[in-house]
Design a protein around this nucleic acid. Structure first.
Length: 439
RNA sequence: UCCCCGAUAGCUCAGCGGUAGAGCGGCCGGCUGUUAACCGGUAGGUCGUAGGUUCGAAUCCUACUCGGGGAGCCA
């Protein structure tokens, strides 16, 4: 008998197939039973009536028992998904004894996170992880189609990339300390000088005691770095990338997005017109104007020049534009040491953040990097950073330095935004937050 | 690190000073098209921990622990 995956059942109408999976739910009504199976690709309803030989045996099937089932695929409007299996026989691979922790009723976040290894089996969580796969795959395809080289940067690093945020420290033999990378950017700059245009998707670690729905201590980041790219090209590439990812998810994961209850018109709107662009100076004015009433009530803080955007400001910007917004040319002192100053105003840097609509926060942070060796050394000094550990990074400007640009994009934030999630912790298989290291 | 909220059955919660409750899940039984099916029965609890107030505390007070939401920082 031919094995089939549930997502392909529409191609097997009238045929007898084998499904290998788990029992999601069972309902019984005297002389008819409905068994819902899942196999990782979707859900399908199986039907058994009293006259079927397997009818009695099916009563042993408990939630999440693993089974191989045989049946004929039938188009059926009354069945969820539109197809059902007229069951012939099944083999119990392993029967679940007693109760299964995750019921079909509501659960609290703590309970669900403690059972993340089982929670992922629920249709909603599985759908999110399928969208995550699509987002990652779209990222790779986007760069591969454009001739970028996929590369890697190290996880163990000798010190901070940017020197500001908190790092996780680990023992590295004998007396040495190593730190988990919070960004691969500096290494990607070196790689870009070897390979031209490079990207990687890897983990990043931040030991910040952030306690919000927009933060994880371990998250995945897409980073790209391009030799001979100046900031306008950099931004153009970012916009094309975001549109590519959204387009792909709309094409290939509509079923998942619908199951998640995502309003896809919000995503379709993203594709229609160019992203909004604002200079930092204008952006703070606009934010303060948009949040005027709340600032007056003391609910939201006014952004001073040189201040960063808070969550309420980002939300207000998203609501105002209804599509992603680039905020360009921030004051140099609020950004990292390696950013290229704006030739028109050296107090500003050629950087841009991409703010997602619907309050999902900063999706991308990018900039043109300093290519002049003397300026880089000067900046290190201004930021109070020692030259010695950055010697190899300075070398990139000594041996054939060129203008170059790049950016970093948060994978979980992107997945969260596309899926319309409440919390980042649903966008990664095993979330790590300040108070959670298990399972 | 700061502010707010919570902890009662396996799960979600009600009870808020006087004998510990419901729904779901488990188990047993009933029901021919169910959609988190439904109906009946049944088992299941040191009321987060420690102290205090009181004749009496799940309930009021204090501390601690754990968790949730938000701020800051950032992706």
């Amino acid at each position: 008998m031919a094995h089939a995956y549930i997502e392909d059942l529409s191609k097997h109408v009238g045929q007898e197939v084998e499904i290998r999976g788990w029992l999601y739910n069972r309902r019984e009504s005297g002389s008819i039973q409905f068994l819902i199976f899942r196999d990782g690709t979707g859900l399908v309803q199986g039907v058994l009536t009293k006259k079927d030989p397997a009818f009695e045996k099916a009563k042993q099937l408990s939630q999440e028992s693993s089974v191989k089932v045989c049946g004929t695929v039938k188009e059926e409007k009354r069945a969820p998904g539109g197809y059902e299996l007229i069951l012939k026989d099944f083999e119990i691979v392993q029967r679940v004894e007693g109760d299964y922790p995750i019921s079909h009723k509501e659960h609290g976040p703590d309970f669900l996170l403690n059972h993340r290894h089982l929670w992922m089996r629920t249709p909603r969580q599985a759908a999110i992880l399928r969208v995550r796969h699509e987002v990652m795959q779209a990222m790779r395809d986007f760069f591969d189609e454009r001739g970028f080289i996929a590369t890697e940067s190290p996880i163990f690093t000798p010190s901070a990339c940017e020197g500001t945020t908190t790092l996780f420290e680990v023992n590295y033999f004998d007396e040495n300390k190593a730190y988990l990378s919070q960004s691969g950017q500096l290494y990607l700059e070196a790689t870009a000088m070897a390979l031209g245009r490079v990207y990687w998707i890897g983990p990043a670690f931040r030991a910040e005691k952030s306690k919000t729905r927009k933060h994880l201590t371990e998250f995945w980041m897409l980073e790209a770095e391009m030799a001979y790219f100046e900031q306008p090209q950099n931004i153009e590439l970012q916009e094309a990338l975001v549109k590519y990812i959204v387009q792909r998810c709309l094409e290939k994961r509509v079923r998942e997005l619908n199951d998640l209850g995502r309003n896809t018109s919000m995503l379709e709107a993203v594709l229609k017109e160019p992203f909004a662009r604002l200079l930092y100076n204008d952006a703070i004015k606009l934010c303060n104007e948009l949040c005027k009433e709340k600032i007056a009530k003391g609910e939201v803080e006014e952004i001073p020049w040189g201040g960063d955007f808070g969550a309420p400001h980002e939300e207000a910007l998203g609501a105002h534009f209804g599509r992603p917004v680039f905020i360009e040319k921030m004051p140099a002192m609020m950004k990292a040491f390696y950013m290229e100053p704006d030739p028109a105003n050296p107090d500003l840097v050629l950087a841009a953040d991409l703010i997602a609509p619907e309050g999902y926060g900063e999706l991308i942070g990018g900039s043109q990097r300093i290519s002049d060796i003397d300026l880089l050394k000067k900046r290190l000094k201004e930021f109070g950073l020692p030259e010695e550990p950055y010697q190899w990074y300075i070398d990139l400007r000594k041996y054939g330095g060129v203008p170059h640009s790049g950016f970093g994009m948060g994978v979980e934030r992107t997945v969260s935004w596309i899926c319309g999630l409440e919390h980042l912790r649903e966008a990664i298989p095993f979330p790590r937050t300040i108070y959670r290291l298990t399972p």
